[in-house]
Amino acid sequence: MMKAALDGNGIHTEMAAISRTFVMKCGGSTLEELPDSFYEDLVKLQGSGIQPVIVHGGGPAISENLSKLGIETKFVNGLRYTSEEVLDVVEMVLAGSINKKIVRRIGQSSGKALGLSGVDGDLIVARPVSASAEVGLVGDVVGVNASLIEGVLKLGYMPVIAPVGVGANGQRYNINADTAAGAVASELGVQRMIVVTDVPGILKSVNGEKRVLPVVTVQQIEDMILSGEIYGGMIPKVRAAIACINGKVREVVIVDGSQPGVLGKVLAGEIIGTKIMRM
């Protein structure tokens, strides 16, 4: 965690820095579609003293590159089966092309960003998931080097993190981006994580019509997963949100990144998307 300053207001200084920081998770395909105005908003927030930390995915681009290379794509319970061969492509796409494209787009909007992989400086330390026999080199996060992220922020750069983790023996792991973002948010001790997607939030059928739920609790999410109202790629998003909220994060907000000024609206406390909160 961020160290308190040595003066009498040290603890207040630390807490103020944490409150100005938020973690944003965004899928690689969503980032591709986001308008320039989204990046301009990010840079305005950075200029105002708010510190975004970005964790990104890139599933569709990974699948596309595997297909080009003639490598089979296989999913087991929503997790990509990851061999060493697949992991080479995962790292190339996540830590390479997608990560650097995000950094470039922030730079084109006159912002300052620094791209990192979870392998850099042991930023994301991982171990095999319990189902590793079925899914291969997929990892669970066991540690986050928060001091490295805080150092990048102090230099005035926006950290852009690719979710590839590293084990104690130097083994790389493919990490679900939602899981990685949740772990980063919890370790940094931020109050809020924003999940930027291409949907307006968590939807629920009301009288045959799909409506966005403005606020949901952890128990409501569990009930909706059991009923099948939350399914597919939304499940890891909400699971990561729940894991985060059980840690130090107060709330997670799922929003549509194409909405104008969406980040500023969330940070200002406007009702937008779906807010997931503790009971």
Rank of each mutant, 00 (worst) to 15 (best):
V55A: 10
I276V: 14
K275R: 15
V138Y: 00
S37A: 15
R127H: 07
I272Y: 05
G233C: 07
V43M: 01
G58A: 01
I272A: 13
H56C: 08
D7W: 03
H56D: 05
I175W: 03
E14M: 15
E229S: 11
E134F: 08
A133P: 02
S258D: 10
R239T: 12
V55F: 09
R211H: 11
A243D: 15
M224A: 13
L137F: 14
E270N: 08
V141H: 06
G78Q: 08
V160T: 03
L188S: 01
G261K: 04
G228M: 11
G111N: 06
D256P: 10
I102F: 15
T217R: 00
G151S: 14
F75Y: 14
I276T: 11
K25I: 03
G139Q: 07
V216E: 01
G165C: 10
G115W: 05
I235K: 13
E64V: 03
P60S: 07
G167L: 06
L66C: 10
V125A: 09
R20N: 11
V164P: 14
V206W: 02
G28R: 04
N176S: 05
G151I: 01
V152F: 02
A4M: 07
K112N: 14
A95D: 06
Y157E: 11
R211T: 12
V249K: 06
K112A: 12
E222S: 13
L6C: 08
K204P: 12
L45S: 10
T21G: 00
V238P: 10
L203T: 11
L267V: 11
L87Y: 04
I102N: 11
V266Y: 07
I161E: 05
I149A: 00
I149S: 00
L203M: 15
P159H: 03
L114Y: 10
A113S: 12
L87D: 13
E84Q: 13
I106V: 15
V86Y: 02
L79G: 03
T82F: 00
V215T: 14
E33S: 14
L263D: 13
I175R: 04
E14Q: 15
A61R: 12
G57D: 07
V206M: 05
D140F: 00
V212R: 03
K68Y: 04
G247M: 05
A185D: 04
G151W: 01
S97M: 09
D41M: 08
R278C: 01
T197M: 09
A185F: 00
